[in-house]
Amino acid sequence: MTISQTLISRAAAAVDVSRSARSSKPSAVVMLVAVVVLVALPFLVFSNVTDTMVNLFVLIALASMWNLLAGFGGLVSVGQQAYIGIGAYSVIALADQGVSPFLAVPLAAVTCVIFALPTSWLAFRLRGDYFAVGTWVIAEVYRLLVVRVDSLGGASGKGLAGLSGIDQTFRGALTYWIALALALATIAGCYLLLRGRLGLALMAVRDEETAASSVGIDVRRAKRMVYLVSAAGCGAAGGVITVSSLSVNPDAIFSVQWSAYMIFIVVIGGIGYIEGPLLGAVIFFALQQLLADYGSWYLVLLGAVGIAAALWLPRGLWGLVRDRTGLSLFPVGYFVRERGADAASR
């Protein structure tokens, strides 16, 4: 037996390593109940409530995707609106070909992956801050290219075909469910992705890129994977936005405003935690509803809160919650506990 084996077996005898926090089981039950209630919501409340909830789900999905990209992949992008736009226009184009708009939403995610693959080659030539602005320019290029295509409505945008025959209430409920499915899928997707081999690789890359690559992690491949998943999620979100608004406008759908929303939701909620975007989106959504009568002042407030969070609360509100309570709804790390003692840490 070598020294290292001896040391490992001795260490293993003293601690338990598990992948779930103590609080994980009860919180899983609570989340399951919450999901069941959310699924049943169209039967329980009026459609104006579910219609607003669609916006919340879209925000959750977008923020989760940005969190995956920046918080776990270290890729701070200001250009994810490229994929929101491509997703939205995919749904429009597919619906024109006779595909059901609801079926077109997952297909929009696939389209975005196809576009993201060559784009990533270009974008990955930029590092750090320049990646941020570079992705933004790429989004602008996509917008300028789309408005040149006359069959997509040019600069004035286009309406969504293929939904006129469906009953309005039923259409509302279907839109709600597909938005809910999107939000759940992005959260579950992040969770499964990060618990696996890729998650471990990503966190190593995020913490120290050179060290990660020296122990054999293919840094570029890990980052590209995250970029593609994030593009797919944003594309599907763009599709849902189109299905819910029934039309698309190039300036609005390719607007950098989406990036502002994503970034501030994640920063306020807590970057690098799966729970962060969820909490941030709920807060953002509540602010939006509360301050709806004050015009763009809510964006001023949002910007100011974002600046404050970046300066004084770098791990966001969820970081605060976690420090106080140790709560973790989606644990992706490892919990090490000394046997017999209560000391627990990630």
């Binding site: 920046a70 701070v76 200001v78 750090g128 801050d129 941020a132 502002a260 970034i263 501030f264 920063v267 970057i271 964006l299 001023v300 949002l302 910007g303 100011a304 974002g306 600046i307 970046a310 300066l311 770098p314």
Partner: peptide, 14 residues
Amino acid sequence: PLATLLVTFGLSIV
């Protein structure tokens, strides 16, 4: 570096 990017982006929105 993320903080500086966020602060200037926040400034832009404000």
